[in-house]
Design a protein around this nucleic acid. Structure first.
Lengths: 190, 190, 190, 190
DNA sequence: AATGAATGAGCTTTCATTCAT
DNA sequence: CATGAATGAAAGCTCATTCAT
């Protein structure tokens, strides 16, 4: 990579990082592009060389971070051996929950903007994420892909919404108290 | 009610209605207070006699509409006789789903802003909503209030997030195709 | 005075008092008529029955309070016996200074809006104030009215501006440290 | 200076000039920022690139113009030779008075907002102004700095307030009629 | 490619004033 | 006389976007 190309990547990264920082701490609504460029240490016009607008960076952040979470969880899971699919799935889900517990601000940012569509896009673009599907297909050998997808969707949805409510809002209680019933529910789903 | 009082209520209602209309069709972000007052046919200053800002109306709308949905569903449910708690619950949940299917824009508006906290507030303020708790307590006679609340939370969360994804985004499929697995999940939860 | 007339006077006084309170604490610029009527406990429209606008009340306050200060000082002075005009004048000036020291907020309010014209108006309308002129004419028997007025003007101006600077702004020092040189100056003027 | 830097200075100056013009002719209260930018021929946003708000420009104007007046007077004074400190001081004060006579609107604008603090700031920032202090220290060789400052303060205060009253309000008479007694007073002070 | 001064549309909010009750 | 809801002009201020350098 040439020096110029490297410089470009650096500008983009610093804009991205600044936007992430501001979105999570001040909120999307309260973050102006002038805030982002100031934090990134670049000129205003430079922003428009790399992003269309505020929501363009946001979309990239959401896709990126969602991918990262799932990727971390699946990688960690694949390092271990499990006696059953259930055990493996629980470990995987727990990785996600623990990550979100540590990254409350990130959870707050992405959840309201995360959709099944984003996850499917992540699956298409990143091989590792697709391994989640393999894991599920292995667990439900007698079901067709569509059914498996629905089950995965249900589990992700319920995990996501419970995490958001418990971790971000502390409602109806904290996540550790909710975990037993969440896992029991997932157990019943599969 | 005096003529003035009636007039006041009318102004407030027309502002509320205009805001609801614009929020659902154009989105919150794209709706300016000047749009709201124009649509409501009142002066700009009048808005500030009744609401603090845009988000003040929004909060009122969310609380109101959430209450309305739950209220409608529980009232409809209470008109019928059921053989079992499960049957009753399914009917109740189905009422909500069918309502949301018919009011896609409303769902889009409130879901991302709805929280368990709002629902609990609705329960406190409106007797009818509290009947949902009675229904659940009757269904789970051997559990304490806290446990019952967690189950109710799980069911509402999963119903809400599935509805949002399927009805608003059509992901991963439409709500009718998702219903069987949703109900099966709920059945397993209880 | 009839009950109705009494009621009217009460409304006016409460508006006046509220305005005075707000002007001194929040400043004229930051006080709206709606603040005044709220504090006075009357309706907005009522304000316009008694005053033209914000500055109308202000003018009344300035005239009133200026008169009050001068009136208090001259009355207090007239209760005593003095060996010389100088002694009498110093006592009189000191009364004003001590009063302003105790009413810093009032000083802040009126000084910037006080003028020689206001004082002359006060003299015309209130007999007591005119006694200040008598005092001076007695002190300068060989000068004509015009010359006496100039001297009085000089003394009032210098006292007022020194008080404002020292009491309100504490510049260049506090009033007690400035008093010696102020009195010395006045002594030299007469 | 680059073209851009020159352009920037020009914008700022035109805003400053427009504000000065409007403040003196229409008053601060009656001048809106939109008036200033219209007169300056720049966009509204440009105003906020250079000033925080209306009062920010005002502060700059007051500091600037006060400095200018004092600077002009001291420079003019330093060009001449005098037989005594008194003569020198009278010449200096007279320069100020004559300037204010010619700039009635400026006097009206700054006097009510001028304070000893502003003058001291001007002294710190501009070497020339400090020469006023040198002049005084030379005149009062036997007094310490603090005492000299008090005397200077008294003279400036009395000159300022007499000028304001006589030039702006024509009370109690015009400045030329007041001059003899003013100078006599100053003479007695020193 | 990068800059950042300049723009001006458009937002929120205030508030003096009116007038039907 | 008194009220206070309603008005709407006009204020302050923001900020995405452009474009000459």
């Amino acid at each position: 990579m040439s020096k110029i190309q490297k410089n470009k990547k650096e500008k983009e990264s610093s804009l991205y990082a600044a936007a992430y920082d501001l979105f999570t701490t001040k909120g999307i609504h309260n973050t102006a592009i002038s805030d982002i460029v100031k934090k990134a240490g670049v000129a205003k016009g430079t922003f428009y060389l790399y992003f269309k607008d505020k929501y363009d960076v946001l979309d990239k952040i959401i896709l990126d971070k969602s991918t990262e979470i799932l990727s971390l969880a699946i990688n960690k899971t694949n390092l271990k051996q499990f006696l059953s699919f259930e055990e493996k799935l629980f470990y995987f889900i727990n990785c996600i929950i623990e990550y979100l517990k540590e990254n409350k601000l990130l959870l707050k940012l992405i959840y309201k903007n995360l959709s099944w569509g984003v996850i499917k896009k992540a699956c298409k673009d990143y091989k590792e994420i697709n391994e989640i599907f393999y894991m599920f297909e292995e667990g439900f050998k007698d079901l067709d892909r569509e059914e498996v997808e629905k089950i995965l969707f249900m589990i992700i949805e319920i995990t996501g919404s419970v995490c958001y409510s418990c971790i971000v809002l502390n409602e109806p209680t904290d996540i550790d108290e909710m975990k037993p019933i969440l896992f029991e529910t997932i157990k019943k789903i599969i």
